[in-house]
Design a binder for these strands. Structure first.
Lengths: 192, 192
DNA sequence: AACCATTTTTTAAATCATCATTCAATTTTT
DNA sequence: AAAAATTGAATGATGATTTAAAAAATGGTT
C-alpha cells in the first residue's frame, strides 16, 4: 500500500512548489534551490524524483493539463445541448481551480518556452488540438458552415488572450466574473 | 553630423540581432555572446551601448512598440469611419512588418517576462492601455453602450490570442490572411 | 594633404557570481 | 537487514559585467 504513496506525495508537493516558485520568480530565472526551499526540501531530492529541471517542468505542465482536462470532462458530462457544451469548454478554462493569477502566469511561461522545448511543445500541441476539436464539434451545430472556423478562432483566441492578460494582473482574479464575461462573448458571436 | 550616426546604427544593429537571437534561442536562454555574434560584434560592446542585458531588452521592446505605434498611426490617419478606424487598429497588429513568427515570438517572450521586470511591465501597460482606448473610442459609436466593454475585450483578447498562436507556428505567417480573418471576426462581433 | 590631440568605439581577458547536477554518506522506511 | 529517501558538499559549466588597453574616427591646424 505505502509503496507508491511517498513517491506520489512528493511528486505533488514538488509540482505545487514549482507552480508557486515559477509564479514568483519567473520560469527562466527560478532555481532548483528556490523550488526546493518552497517545498521544504533539497535540490538533490528533486533530481532524485524528476531526473532534471526539465523533467520537473514537464511534470508540472502535465499536472496543469490534467486539471484542465478534468474540469472540461466534468462540465461536459453535465451539458446536454451544443450550446451548453460549448459553454462548458469555456467554463473549464475559467474554472475556480485554474483561473488564478498564479496558474495563468505559469501557463504563460510554459507557453512562451514551448517553442524551445520539444517536450513542452508536444504537450502544448496536444492540448490545443483537443480544445479545437471540442469547439469545432459544437459550433458545427450552432453556426452556418462557412462561419464555423471564424467563430472557433474568435472564441479560442479570446480564451487565450484573457489568460494572457490574467497573467499580468496584480490583483486576484474573479473566475465567476470571467465565466460571465465569456458567456457574453459567446452571445455576441453566436447568431441569436 | 556623424556624431550621432554610429551610435544610432549600432543601436539598430544590436536590436535587430536581439530579435533574431531571442527568437532562435528563447529570452531566458539567449546569451550576450550569442546576440553579439549575431550582430558581428562583441558582448562588451553591447554593454557599452546599453549598459546591461536588461537595457538591451528594454530597447528592443521599445523598438517593437514603435513599429506598432507607427503602423497604427498610419492606418488610423487614412480611415474616416469608426468602423474603418477599428479595422485600422486591428490591421496594424497584423501588418506585414509586425505579424511574423519572429516578431510574435519575441513579443510573447517579453509578455511572459514582463511581470518580473518593472521596465518591461511599464512599457507593456502603456501599450495595452493605448490600444484599449482606441478600441473603446470607436466601439462607443458602433455598439450599444452595455456591450462596449464586452466587444472590446472580445476583440482585444482575440488579437492577443492570435499572436500567442502565431508565436508557436512552425510555418511562415500570412499577414493578409490574418487581417482578413480579423475582419470576419469584427463582422461577427458587430451588429450588422 | 599630413599631423597631432582628443574623443569614441572595440574587444580580449579577467572577475565574479550563479546553478544544475552528481556523489558519497546518512537517515528513514519497509 | 535491505531498500528507499534525503541532503551537504563537491563538481563542472556557464555567462554577465568590468577593466584595461588598443584601434578607429574626428576636428582643428598647418
Amino acid at each position: 500500500m505505502g509503496r507508491k504513496r511517498i513517491r506520489d506525495i512528493r511528486h505533488e508537493e514538488f509540482v505545487e512548489a514549482t507552480i508557486t516558485a515559477v509564479h514568483e520568480r519567473g520560469y527562466g530565472v527560478v532555481t532548483m534551490a528556490e523550488i526546493a526551499r518552497e517545498a521544504g526540501s533539497s535540490a538533490a531530492s528533486i533530481n532524485y524524483y524528476f531526473g532534471s529541471k526539465e523533467g520537473l517542468m514537464e511534470a508540472t505542465m502535465r499536472h496543469l493539463l490534467r486539471l484542465l482536462r478534468t474540469a472540461m470532462i466534468e462540465g461536459y458530462s453535465q451539458a446536454s445541448t451544443p450550446r451548453d457544451r460549448l459553454l462548458a469548454v469555456m467554463d473549464a478554462n475559467f474554472s475556480d481551480s485554474l483561473y488564478s493569477v498564479e496558474k495563468c502566469s505559469i501557463w504563460m511561461q510554459f507557453w512562451a518556452n514551448a517553442p524551445y522545448s520539444p517536450r513542452l511543445s508536444r504537450l502544448h500541441r496536444i492540448n490545443r488540438s483537443r480544445v479545437r476539436s471540442h469547439f469545432t464539434a459544437e459550433l458545427r451545430r450552432l453556426v452556418p458552415q462557412p462561419q464555423v472556423e471564424t467563430a472557433r478562432t474568435a472564441l479560442q483566441s479570446y480564451m487565450d488572450g484573457v489568460w494572457l492578460q490574467a497573467a499580468q494582473s496584480d490583483a486576484p482574479l474573479d473566475p465567476a466574473a470571467a465565466r460571465e464575461a465569456a458567456h457574453q462573448v459567446v452571445d455576441l458571436v453566436l447568431p441569436r
